[in-house]
Amino acid sequence: MTKKKLQAIACWLAVMIVGFVLINALVYVGVIDAFIENMLVTIGINIILATGLNLIIGFSGQFSLGHAGFMAVGAYATGIILQAMPTTVGFFVSIVVGIAIAIVVAIIIGIPTLRLSGDYLAIATMGAAEIIRVVINNMKVTNGAAGLFNIPQFATWPVVYIFVCLTTAVIVNFAHSRAGRAIQAIRDDEIAAEAVGINPTKWKLAAFVLGASTAAVAGSLHASYIQTIAPTDFGIMNSIAMLIIVVLGGVGSMTGTFFAAVVLGVLDTVLQSFGTLRMVIYAVALIVIMVFKPTGLLGRYEFSFARVLDRFRKKKEDAA
């Protein structure tokens, strides 16, 4: 690997560690209270969900509206397993089980539906997620419509923070590899992609499955942080909320997804005091941003340490 790339990786690791230390310090001195911590965890979980969805929509060009279904799979895996095994080991086992089930479900849903294009795919995946929800709603082990409560809390903010870093690294590294180029080629022109030897079904499915498994992780974290889950937490409106983050940030921009998740998380917290008017303001904000910034807040911009380092080096050379 080139020196430049290693430096960029080192920068990212440094950012992650500094962020962690910084939040820890702020919690310690009391700047971050339970209220803000709750906001940070929600933002973190939304980042995990939305980066995975952005991989599916922005990179592979497949319009999926069923992300909440996979989140439900992870949440219920954790909720159920933690009842039988209320230990840290149980928590991690439940995450793995959630991922495994999400992969199987994503393959079952993806093989027939990923042949559909555009809005047809959106509506089919939305339907599939609703089917998952109805099934959960009618199962005994999931406690039906009442849901599960008193789930032990293992997903504290440091755990969520680490998972945000992990899943983002997985998604971004996937997007910037052979696989990432293949799915972007399919997005830009499926016929041409096939003509250069790319198997569209295989690669679309790969992106879909990866996105689904990170959504399951987010579901597990959600279940063990909030400690209560019910089928209504994973409806169409929840899938749409994730879609909003992706589009607001800029389809295809992971930086944008982070930015939008933070902006929306803060906005939501600030608007808490407005009562019923909260959602009206939120709706107007959404419409206004879309009308004036149709490609999202950041468009297709992607922050890259490699580029920043390049510029830095050039300046140094110019100065020398």
Partner: peptide, 12 residues
């Protein structure tokens, strides 16, 4: 997709 999000905003 932008118009779609706007439509969702209008719905909200």
């Amino acid at each position: 997709i932008t118009a779609l999000i706007t439509a969702i905003g209008v719905s909200y």
